[in-house]
Amino acid sequence: MIEARGLSKRYGDKVAVDDLSFTVRPGLVTGFLGPNGAGKSTTLRMIVGLDQPTSGTATVCGRPYRELARPLCTAGALLEAKAVHSGRTAREHLRGLAASNRLPKRRVDEVLEQVGLTATARRRVGGFSLGMGQRLGIAAALLGDPEVIILDEPVNGLDPEGIQWVREFMRGMADEGRTVLVSSHLMSEMQDTADHLIVIGRGRLAADSSMADFLARSSHNGVVVRSPHTARLVPVLRGDGATVDALVDRDRAGEQDRAEDPPLIVKGLDARRIGELAGQNGLWLHELAPQRVSLQEAFMELTADAVEYRVGQRRTAEHIGGAA
């Protein structure tokens, strides 16, 4: 369990993290999303006690990280790929960390085995690929068999095989009842991995919701319907509470040009209900396709507000400048 309460970080006038409150629960993979520079890494650093919050608190398993008696056994963190002295071997790096928390030496061999680095354990880290560096970072996070696992951009720079490995690893950790918090700016990656999302934009909390709910609230949701009986179908659907619009979609621009049965986007009814209504009224359907909204689209929609806000602010600044 990770809890942030009113967490804020300012660097002079610049607000990096602004009054963040959220709870990361065990048994789930929680995705921590935001555009680059949104304050994700700063937040994670405050959680593990590297950066001091300007105000607010962050706790791991109920205590501030810096007060944990045996931190590696409570929380394991991968904050940077290859944050290891390049001249040191993987094994020595892990042996030092194990010694610092009174962990037995056999844990070093166990985690090396777990991440598949046994064969390269005696090589200097300087020669590691990015993927091997990520694995070493994950091995370090696992050393104390911790309840909480924090990963900052773990799939950055990984090949598809490595991405798959990290994904399965996170899933496995959550299924064992651990708390998994993983940051990313890659929405497509999170869509298949995370159960829950915490989204921040410009240091502020934008969403704290399950993946399903986050996607469901997107305006891109709906069912695409084509029918030769559009004129009769639309009132029927509207009568059942649906919102029906002409589908405006760049990908389907060609289809819209064809006059016969232009595609509609129906919201508020699922495909099954639309099909039933059409059947009951003897109306034909040529297409009935639920749209699968991507996390990317839902995210862009959410953060569009933030972009508008930024533009508005600049205008205000110019206005003030003009007045002075």
Partner: peptide, 25 residues
């Protein structure tokens, strides 16, 4: 920016999973 908040995907987080207690001890 409006904040979106909804319930968790699983009503009961898996705190009582069979994993052994970790950390302290």
């Amino acid at each position: 920016m409006n904040t979106v908040r909804t319930q968790y995907a699983r009503p009961e987080p898996l705190v009582d999973s069979p994993a052994p207690p970790r950390g302290d001890g």
